[in-house]
Amino acid sequence: MREVSKSFGTVQALRGFALSVQGGEFVTVVGPSGCGKSTLFNIVAGLDEPDDGGILRFKDRGCHARELLGRVSFMPQRDLLLPWRNVIDNAILANEIEGASRRDARARALAMLPEFGLAGFEKQYPHQLSGGMRQRVALMRTFLFERELMLLDEPFGALDALTRTMMQRWLLDVWQRHRRTILFITHDVDEAIFLGDRVLVMTARPGAVKLARQVDLPRPRTPDLVTAPEFVALKREILDAIEEEAMKSFIASTGA
């Protein structure tokens, strides 16, 4: 993405946004509320076209955003599981919509259940699952929709702190086995650093890249990493950048 902007009437959500993501990279995105993170994802998912003048390239070819629709897997903030479908049938929904054989899709999903910590739960319905398990079903559905680029929009935001920490470690294990390319939105700076190869901090609206930092911390990541001096120093730099942009948003909203 180069010089990508997006306006909605008089509101400019993005201006001059630039980002390049390599295959297999895990990039996390943080920033103040309303900075255009979700607009960014909607463009990459093919749901919104950017304003004229921006450049999008996918697999070394120029494209319109609409050409990305169906070529990128996208998990929004809510799990969006269908209450009348059990775990296995929720997991294969995208494959069914694409026209895959229901029997073949179910067989693939059943084989993947242990990897996602869902073995033995294939016949359970969403209301019978914990929040963490519902998110695992939604992530399994996203992985089964086999696309090289995955967009994850705050998938753990509604979980309690302990469950969230467990889910982060689990996601890294799954990612390291499959090596999909991931763009991950979060408001949690610890989460952004712990998961990412690279952390992007967005400016206040209109959103652009304020800061991009490589996370040069060893993998696999262990829980004690969050107290390491290198982690704490990077967290401080990122928090300072976010606080500066959040203050700009606050001043703009109050007219101070």
Rank of each mutant, 00 (worst) to 15 (best):
L93P: 01
R61Q: 15
L159N: 03
A204M: 02
S7T: 04
R57T: 07
F156G: 01
G62S: 08
V27H: 02
L159R: 11
G36Y: 05
W175H: 13
R66P: 01
I43R: 09
R15W: 01
S33P: 05
G31N: 07
A246G: 10
A241R: 06
L113E: 00
V201W: 00
A45V: 10
D160R: 11
E49Q: 14
F17N: 02
L82E: 08
A212F: 12
E245Q: 15
P32N: 11
I242T: 01
T163A: 02
A100M: 12
I43F: 12
V4G: 04
P83Y: 03
L159C: 09
T10I: 05
S5Q: 11
D89H: 13
G9Q: 03
V137A: 03
A138V: 02
Q22M: 07
L159Y: 06
I55K: 12
T203S: 13
L149E: 02
A246M: 08
M202W: 02
K59S: 08
G31T: 08
I88C: 10
H187P: 01
V137M: 06
P223C: 12
E146Y: 07
R213E: 15
L217M: 08
F184S: 00
E98D: 07
L239S: 06
I92V: 14
V189T: 03
G131V: 10
L172D: 03
R180M: 02
F8W: 05
A233D: 15
H178M: 04
L200W: 03
A94N: 14
K248Y: 03
A13L: 09
M167V: 07
S5A: 14
R71H: 13
I97L: 14
G62Y: 06
D160I: 12
F156L: 02
A107E: 15
R221I: 02
A233N: 13
G46L: 08
V232K: 09
I97H: 09
R169M: 14
E230L: 13
W170K: 08
G54I: 14
M140P: 00
Q124K: 14
E49R: 04
S101T: 12
G24M: 10
G9P: 12
I242R: 00
L171C: 03
N42R: 12
R164D: 06
I55N: 11
T165E: 12
G196F: 00
A138K: 00
L144F: 15
S253A: 14
S249I: 00
L152E: 03
T254W: 10
L14M: 04
L159M: 08
F116V: 01
A91M: 01
F145V: 04
K248W: 02
L239E: 09
F26V: 05
S253R: 13
A158S: 12
L80S: 14
M166A: 12
D51L: 11
G16R: 02
I185R: 02
L159H: 14
D173I: 01
R180C: 01
R164I: 06
V232G: 12
V226S: 10
H178N: 04
M150D: 06
L69S: 10
